[in-house]
Structure formats: structure tokens, C-alpha cells
Design a protein around this nucleic acid. Structure first.
Lengths: 360, 360
DNA sequence: CTGAAAGCGCTTACAG
DNA sequence: CTGAAAGCGCTTACAG
């Protein structure tokens, strides 16, 4: 539309080809119309301070008139940046549908949009890693930097980034010589344990995920320390693997309660496992929190809407995503100092916890 | 590593500059080493059938040796494709954390990866649309095509794509002159209603979202038709707006039950609202399904793990995402025929539904 | 079946 | 403060 309405000298001279509306306007046409060189137009486009306000105004006017939009492929080929960032995550079942990843990515996307960057999604499937496609992302100039979420110590390919000097930042994980932004899961776990102990619970089970995951290790260590200092003993059979999912949280709880009927509280390493625990308790006719207290971690969206509403730790995932994205961009733009940020967590009290049934 | 190990004639001659490992290898070096022209290398890269098996082998060998990776920015500038697709969605609160979008996007990403395409994420914020950045995506050559998810009739800017001839495909929505891939929500709703009526329910409330949303309209129409034909009457006060969320599903249920204590079943237009309904029922001391049957829609991941496990309609969101992505790529690659696909849905029976308390 | 050349649409030194 | 020219690294007609 914009191309047909302005009273422009009809370009009928060379009417051949050109499907509709004629050739796309390029930087050359802008330069010609504005009576400057293409270099000047380019500098206006890139907000180069060398350009006079007057020149800028003149060029900007022509750009608006002709509806010129710079080709970002050409821009990237000539310049150093693609203005594209990747988010890399493991291939869990339907990763994107997980509220944990979702919150993180929401934060990342919002911040990226605000800073004029685009976000690309990548899954680190086995063949992806085998074929070194994570490296291709940089070598083939897809992206300027990468955000890694959901990985564990086992994902050693992450070390490739640091080795090659590619800009990568890990979220809720540390190591591999990379920058990181993490939530304070250790403090979160400590707050939970303190709270449960205050309520009189002594037999507290834990639903954990793989200890290869940094944040989970933090929580497990804190849990063990708390138990040890409160009860003077330790009992590893109170720790069961719920593999981060509702399904396994359910079966793990089932095992735990069968082996230890005296357990009065369960600390789940994430809300999904806690949901599995609630489900298991309901099925066994145990009232929560009457017979059993359950607490989760992360405070994902539906934690407030399960029955009973879940007491949990709020990890600021959205903000974590925002910060991670911002810091990565800092690095791309030249920041030298490595990034290592920790965001605070806090307890969210709801209806799944109460005083222990019988204090020992 | 690869660059230091092979016993290559030391390139010490021009030792200046070049931070580490020397200059990145380009198509020119490959051509030189393989003793062919760059055009030939390019053709090998693009699997051009004109190339002899012999030539191909020779060139491929050199490529592998030198670890050459084509610069995709340069490729895109010379060719017609970016091999990048965008997923566009509205800005709901933390959209990505929503299982509905998550499942869809998981399917899209997996299919895209398999077909060698990359996926970019975009949110249609007010300023995004105002500044016509959805058009920029094409004009500035970010992408080859776009997948639109989560939109309603109100999002008229979607019409811009068809008008400009840009390749766009809508998921679970029709109109705007665009291609579409949708789940059969009408059939899903019909299955639900038939089932509830069979169970003896006559006073059935519905939690709906905006009727501007195509799929919701399908369900509402089906609901009304079912009620009318089963009871001979209609009562619009049985329809309450739950705005697709747990929160509003909760309050809508509260309203509904206050106004109509005789309601024995609730059909929620999505699982999130159903979850709100379950929560509300629990708080009012109503047993589900004893006092009240509740059914949702979509069968999102945690629907099986809430208390009680939710009866719902399975909409194959993951597969829908896969198909949508595949069809969009078909179009990019030249398919002329518009895409209009409908995927079947089916009822998933769980524990939130049972016979009506008292049949009238 | 392969090669030499032009061109994609920008940015970036380098002069002036 | 601005311009002319080279170059980013490929692909694509066009010859041969």
C-alpha cells in the first residue's frame, strides 16, 4: 500500500519483470533521494554519532517516505553481529511445555525483545551434540551468544564453548568455564527445612532429581545437613529419586511411604514431584496437610491451584531469564568480567503444610 | 584442535594479526585445495545433481579435512532462503510457561530441527504490532515463514500477511486468508456433552474463554446445541467466562455454583479453567465427582496428576505443532495449494466425572 | 559437467 | 562531517 499511494514519478520506464510494486528499495535508493552517500545512510541507520542532526533528519525523512527497511542479512554479513541469541536445552519430553523452562524462556524473550535481539530455540538431542551442531551455531554465524538451561554435569559438550571462546551463559548451573546466573536453591532448601522443623517434623522425606544437576545437589546437601543437625543422625533411605516429574514423584512417594509410614513431611525438589506426592497421598487416603505435609520448589504457575494449594519456594525464574539474557548481551557488547549472579529465593506458605501430627 | 593437529605446511609466512588459529576457512580455500572452482564447491554444498560423484567426493573430502562450515549469512544473502521460521504468539502472562503453547512449540521445534530449519520466537506485544514489526520479519529478511498460535478474531493485523503475500499459517484458528491446522474442538466438545448427558447430567455449566477465539466458539456452539436438544431449553446464565486461566476458572465456578446450586457438572473449555473449578469445589466442600463432575479440554501434562485426575479431551497439540511446521515448510518450498488440516480429538476418561447425583 | 564473473545489500576503514 | 571503494562469503545465471 505504502508503495502505491505516494505521488511518485512513475517508474514505468523499465516495466519488465518485477512481479508487483517494483523492486524493493535499498540503501542506494535512499542515498540517491537524500543526496548523500550510502555510507552516510548506513551511519544514520546505525546511529553513528558522527552524523549531523541535519543530515540525519534529511535521511530519516527519505527512509520513512520510501518505507525502507534494512536487510538484516546484508547487515550481518558486513558487520560483526547477527543479533540472534540461541536458547539451548536438553530434550526432555516436550520441554517447552514445562513451566520451569517456560518461565525462564518467557523472561529471556521479553528481555531480548526489549534489547532488539531475536531468540532462537535449540534442543540438544543426541545427534545434535554428536554432529557438533552446537558449534555450528557459532561457526556458521547463526548466533552471537547462547543461553544454556536445564543441563547437568553430564553434559560435557558445554565445555566446548569456553574452549573455543564462544559466548555462552548457563542458567541455574555452574561450571564448564562458563558464565552463570542462578537462583539460590540452597537458601530455598534451608528455608524449607527450618520451617518444617519448626512445625515439629522430624521424619522428613525428600523427593530429589539427579544430583548431577547443580541446583538439585545444592538442595540435597542442605537437606542432609539440616536433618543431621536436627536429629543427630542421617538416613539415606528417606531420599528417593523422583526424577523431576509428576509420574516419578508419585511412585517415589509411594515407595517412601511404604517403607517409612512414620514420615510426616515430604520435601520435593520441584513442584512437579510435589504434585505427584499430593496425588499419591490422596490415593492412599492420607490427608494433606493433616497426615502429611508436602512442600515443593519453584512456585510454578499452577502450584497455587492444586489441592491443597502447595507450599513451595519461589525461585524467580522469569527474572532469572531476564537477567541471564541481559548479561549475555553485555558480554556480546564487550563486557570483559565473567558473569556470576545469584538471585534470592523465598518461601511461599500455602495449605499443604501444618504442624506435625505427633511430635516425637 | 582440528586445526593444529594435521601435519599441514606451517602457515607461518604471514604470521601477523590473526588472533588464534588463523583465518576462518572459506569456500575459496576449499576450491583451491580441491582444485575446482568455488561454484563447484557451492554446488556440492547444495547437493546440486549436476555434480559428478567423483567431484563430489573430492570436494567433500577437503571440506571434512579443513572442517569447513559454510557461513549461512552469506548463503542467505545470495539465496532465497533464511531457513528460519518464526513462531508468533500473543503476550499473555508468561506465555511460554503455558502447557498449551508449550506442547505446540515442542512439536514445531522438533519438526523444524528434523527439516533443517531454525525457529525464532516472537511475541505480538502492542508496540510490536503498532510498529509493524511482524512485517519487518519478512521485509528485513529474518524469516521465510511464520506460524501464528493463540490468536483470536480481534488480531486483525494477521490480515497483513495474506495481503502482502507473506507465508503464514495459523494453528487452531481460521480466517484472515491464511493457511491453518486445527484440532477438532467441535467434536471434542460433542464427545464431552454426549458423555455427560449419558451420565445423567442435565444442569451442566460451561466455563468458557473469549468467543473471539475460534476453537472456543466451536466448543460453545456445540455446548449450546447439545443442551438445547437434550433439555429443550437454553439458559445462558450457565455459561460463565473463565478467561482461559486457573484464577478466573476458579472465580467463574464460584459464581456459577452460587447462582445455580443445582449444577451437577461443569465443562471447562480448557484444563486450566477446569483446575480452577476443582479448586473451587474443594474449597466449598463439594466432592468431585460425587457432588460435581468436572471435565476439561486439551489434556495438558498435569491433568492426570491433579486431585481428582481430570477427565478431559485430548487435543493432539504436539502433533498439531509438527504438522503445522511441516506444512508451512511445504509452502515455502513451493506448494501452491492452501493448507487446511483438521486433527481428530478424543475423550480421556479419568476420575473427575461420574453419574449425576440425582437424575431429574 | 565445470569455470569466471557478477551480484546479493549492507558496513567499514580510509581519504578528504 | 561525508564520500568512493573494497569487502563480507556465498549463489546463480551464463558460457563453454
Amino acid at each position: 500500500m505504502a508503495e502505491t499511494s505516494p505521488p511518485q514519478p512513475a517508474a514505468n520506464g523499465r516495466a519488465k519483470g518485477k512481479p508487483r510494486g517494483g523492486k524493493r528499495v535499498g540503501i542506494r535508493e535512499i542515498a540517491a533521494q537524500a543526496e548523500v552517500s550510502v555510507a552516510t545512510v548506513s551511519m544514520v541507520l546505525n546511529n553513528n554519532p558522527k552524523i549531523t542532526g541535519e543530515t540525519r533528519a534529511k535521511v530519516t525523512k527519505v527512509i520513512d517516505q520510501l518505507g525502507y527497511r534494512p536487510n538484516r542479512i546484508a547487515q550481518s554479513l558486513s558487520s560483526k553481529y547477527t543479533n540472534l541469541l540461541a536458547v539451548l536445552m536438553p530434550t526432555l519430553r516436550h520441554t517447552m511445555a514445562d513451566p520451569y523452562f517456560g518461565e525462564l524462556i518467557s523472561g529471556i524473550c521479553d528481555k531480548a525483545a526489549r534489547l532488539g535481539q531475536k531468540i532462537m530455540l535449540e534442543h540438544a538431542k543426541p545427534d545434535f551434540v554428536r554432529e557438533k551442531r552446537h558449534i555450528d551455531l557459532f561457526d556458521r554465524r547463526y548466533i552471537d551468544g547462547i543461553l544454556c538451561i536445564g543441563f547437568s554435569d553430564k553434559h560435557t559438550f558445554l565445555g566446548d564453548f569456553a574452549e573455543r571462546g564462544d559466548l555462552a551463559l548457563m542458567v541455574n548451573n555452574v561450571g564448564f568455564g562458563l558464565d552463570h546466573v542462578v537462583c539460590d536453591y540452597a537458601s530455598g532448601a534451608e528455608q524449607i527445612m527450618t520451617y518444617l522443623l519448626q512445625l515439629g517434623h522430624r521424619r522428613i522425606g525428600m523427593l530429589h532429581g539427579s544430583p548431577d544437576v547443580y541446583t538439585m545437589r545444592q538442595m540435597m546437601d542442605t537437606y542432609k545437613k539440616s536433618i543431621a543437625s536436627a536429629t543427630g543422625g542421617e538416613d539415606d533411605t528417606l531420599l528417593v529419586d523422583g526424577r523431576f516429574t509428576e509420574e516419578h514423584g508419585y511412585t517415589a512417594t509411594s515407595q517412601l511411604l511404604s517403607k517409612h509410614p512414620d514420615v510426616t513431611a515430604i520435601f520435593a525438589g520441584n513442584d512437579k514431584m510435589a504434585l505427584g506426592a499430593l496425588h499419591c497421598a490422596a490415593e492412599r487416603g492420607l490427608s494433606v496437610p493433616g497426615d502429611l505435609s508436602v512442600v515443593g520448589c519453584d512456585n510454578i504457575q499452577y502450584a497455587a491451584f492444586v489441592n491443597p494449594a502447595l507450599t513451595t519456594v519461589n525461585t524467580p525464574l522469569y527474572d532469572t531469564g531476564m537477567l541471564a539474557c541481559e548479561r549475555l548481551i553485555d558480554r556480546i557488547r564487550g563486557r570483559k568480567r565473567p558473569v556470576a549472579e545469584v538471585l534470592p529465593t523465598h518461601l511461599v506458605l500455602r495449605d499443604s503444610t501444618s504442624l506435625a501430627k505427633q511430635t516425637q
